[in-house]
Structures are given as C-alpha cells and as structure tokens.
Simulated assay, not measured.
Amino acid sequence: MGDKPPGFRGSRSWIGCVEASLCLDYFGGPQGRLRHVPRGAGLRGELERLYSHFTVGGGPVMVGGDVDARSKALLGVCLGPGTEAYVLVLDPHCWGAPETPSQLQAAGWVGWQEVNTTFDPNSFYNLCWTSHNSEKEQLHTQN
C-alpha cells in the first residue's frame, strides 16, 4: 500500500489499528474509523458510544495500545449498575474453527472482562471501529 518501507513486506513486524484501518479501506472491507484515547482510564468515557455501536449492529472494534501491547478485539459491552462495566474481548490471535463457541471461551480466546482491569490506565489506545457505510454516517455525527 506504500505506507511501509520495502523491507516490511514478508517481515514479522506488527501492524496497529491505524494500519488495520488503512488495510480495510485499501482492500474494500468494512469502514474503519479511528479514535484515539490518550489514557486507558479514558476508555470509560467511550463505553456508552461502544454500547450504541454494538446495539446498531456495528462490527468488532480493534484495540491497540502502547504500554499495553496486548491487542484486543471488542465484540460487546455490558454496562452494570454504578460503575460496573465489562467488555467482550476476542484475542485477535485466535485461529482455526472451534467445534463449539464454548471451546473459544474455555481456551481463553474470548470472554467478558472488567473494564478497569482490561485496560492499563497509563497506556494510550487506538480504537478502530468497523462499520457499514450507514453506521459510518452515525459515527460522524457522534464525534
């Protein structure tokens, strides 16, 4: 795509949410919209927006950070009473086809995680929201 030096092709170097968004656009996939969160504690402020995103059928939200280098894909949000909040996290390194969905959970590839322990308060995060064109319009109006 021209955004990396020639030696990147065929390497084992990682890409982040910014590059994932570029790839989605380049290869004609779902729309990818980037949102930067300067500190992990700021993700609490994104929970209502994430909840709305998934409620209207938005796709997975890719998450990458700096201090917290564990990539994640968010698949859902559960807002409880008070400050209780959980995100449904898929490890994007998951591969193969499980025989049952419960196998994914048993192997630790997917599961509900409490927001306060899932995100490092000292790390910045980039979120790549995937959506169809109609949802892209909604995201523009929410920002």
Rank of each mutant, 00 (worst) to 15 (best):
G96M: 09
F8Y: 10
E99W: 05
Y51N: 14
W14S: 12
R35S: 08
S21I: 10
N116I: 11
Q142E: 11
K72F: 08
A69W: 04
P121C: 01
G59A: 15
V77T: 06
V110K: 06
Q103P: 00
A85F: 13
Q105I: 10
R44W: 07
T118C: 07
E46I: 08
Q105L: 09
N126G: 08
W109K: 05
S11K: 08
Y26K: 09
G42S: 08
Y51W: 12
G59D: 14
V110Y: 05
G64M: 07
E19N: 01
A107V: 00
G58S: 12
D120K: 00
V37P: 07
P98W: 00
E135N: 08
H93A: 14
S21G: 12
A106H: 06
G40D: 01
P38L: 10
Q105G: 07
K72Y: 09
L79C: 07
P6C: 04
G42L: 04
L75A: 11
V77Y: 04
F124D: 15
G111S: 02
L34I: 15
C128L: 02
R44H: 13
G42D: 01
G108E: 12
N133V: 14
T117A: 05
P101D: 00
P5W: 03
L43V: 11
P121L: 01
R35W: 06
W95F: 14
V56K: 12
R44C: 07
D68W: 04
R39G: 01
V18Y: 04
C128R: 05
Q31Y: 11
D91Q: 12
E137T: 10
H132W: 13
A20W: 06
G42W: 03
S131A: 15
H53R: 05
G32L: 06
L74T: 01
S52D: 14
G10F: 13
S71L: 10
H132T: 15
G82L: 09
W14T: 10
G65D: 05
E135G: 07
G58C: 07
H36M: 15
G45R: 02
H140T: 12
E84P: 13
R35Y: 01
I15H: 02
S13W: 11
S52W: 09
V89E: 09
L47V: 06
D25Q: 10
D120V: 02
R12Q: 13
G64R: 04
V115F: 03
S21H: 05
K4P: 04
P38M: 10
W112T: 09
E114W: 11
R35A: 11
F124N: 14
A20H: 00
C128N: 03
V77Q: 00
E48V: 10
R44V: 02
V61L: 00
Q103T: 06
N126T: 15
A69L: 09
G65H: 03
G96R: 01
Q138H: 12
C17Q: 01
Y125A: 04
W112C: 10
L50R: 03
R9N: 13
Q31L: 13
L22P: 00
D120G: 05
T130Y: 03
G108D: 12
A107C: 11
H132G: 14
G64V: 02
C17S: 08
A69Q: 13
W112N: 11
R12W: 10
G80F: 01
Q31M: 13
T100Q: 12
Q113M: 14
E135K: 06
V115W: 02
Q113D: 07
L104W: 01
E99Y: 02
T141W: 05
